[in-house]
Design a protein around this nucleic acid. Structure first.
Lengths: 149, 149
DNA sequence: TATTGTTATACTCTATAACTATA
DNA sequence: TATAGTTATAGAGTATAACAATA
């Protein structure tokens, strides 16, 4: 012991004292789960926001960048580089709706990406649910929905 | 209509088509909840990582920066600016354990910050739980724990 | 007058590689 | 040889302000 006043750190791993805090657990769970999905999406060269945008554009054929941003909670200004990248990748196109607004539409290549994307999302979501003990499983979605909807 | 082929965007707000996906709900809930807590912590001039570090250091009196990083899932390299800021704010000190390791200890000012911090965390966590319908409430923590522990 | 798309900018968080020194 | 602390750096995500043009 060198300082005398302070005990040595101890060899073993430190226990996490916050595991009983729902807010903390929510952050850790979201980080772990989104990191997992991000890794899966690398196979398609997509990011989380890319994937959600592609899926949204399929659902709603005619959407403007501003509308997408409002739904996905992405600032209007931050939609620009996102769309630039997806357009550069040939997955979406900006089609003028009038002289002010642009519709974001899927290209043929964008449509083709949706099949493997659907598969990845389905595997990810089912894997997520599978990790939750059965008695808690059906409560997760309504509990989460209450926190942001 | 200018293009003919594409329908106008529609006046009302767009529905979010992903509300039934647990992974998506998890991300949205975590973002909303953490944004809320971040706002509350502004009153103490603390960030999320600052707060969790202060609380951890109180629980475990003798911890090194590396140990803190392992518990809180913060890279060793990213601990440095975090600790620099907390030390500059006079909330923690780096105390040599030996010639290699540093113990992170609370200063008197750091200890004083813990009282209002505890209050903010308690209000935040109870408010979070209060928003969840009673029948789902007790299931949230075990469900989340299964996703990252 | 409100909204769209855009530019510019900045801050936070996160991730990696590499270096020195010590256990 | 493994670990601690550090530096430097880069990539994401996010936030605000401001602008021109159009609904």
């Amino acid at each position: 012991m060198t300082t005398g006043k302070i005990a040595p750190p101890g060899a073993g791993a430190l226990a996490d004292p916050f595991t009983d805090l729902p807010g903390y657990a929510l952050r850790r769970a979201a980080n772990a789960v989104m990191s997992d999905l991000t890794t899966r999406l690398v196979a398609l060269n997509l990011r989380l926001s890319d994937a959600s945008l592609l899926l949204l554009v399929r659902e709603r054929q005619t959407v403007t960048a501003s509308q997408i941003g409002r739904v996905l909670d992405i600032q209007r200004a931050n939609m620009v580089p996102l769309l630039n990248r997806l357009e550069a990748a040939g997955l979406v196109e900006r089609v003028p709706l009038d002289r002010k607004s642009l519709a974001i539409v899927l290209t043929a290549a964008g449509l083709q990406q949706l099949a493997p994307l659907d598969r990845i999302i389905a595997e990810f979501e089912s894997g997520l649910l599978a990790r939750i003990p059965a008695e808690h499983r059906d409560h997760l979605l309504p509990a989460l929905a209450a926190l942001w909807r």
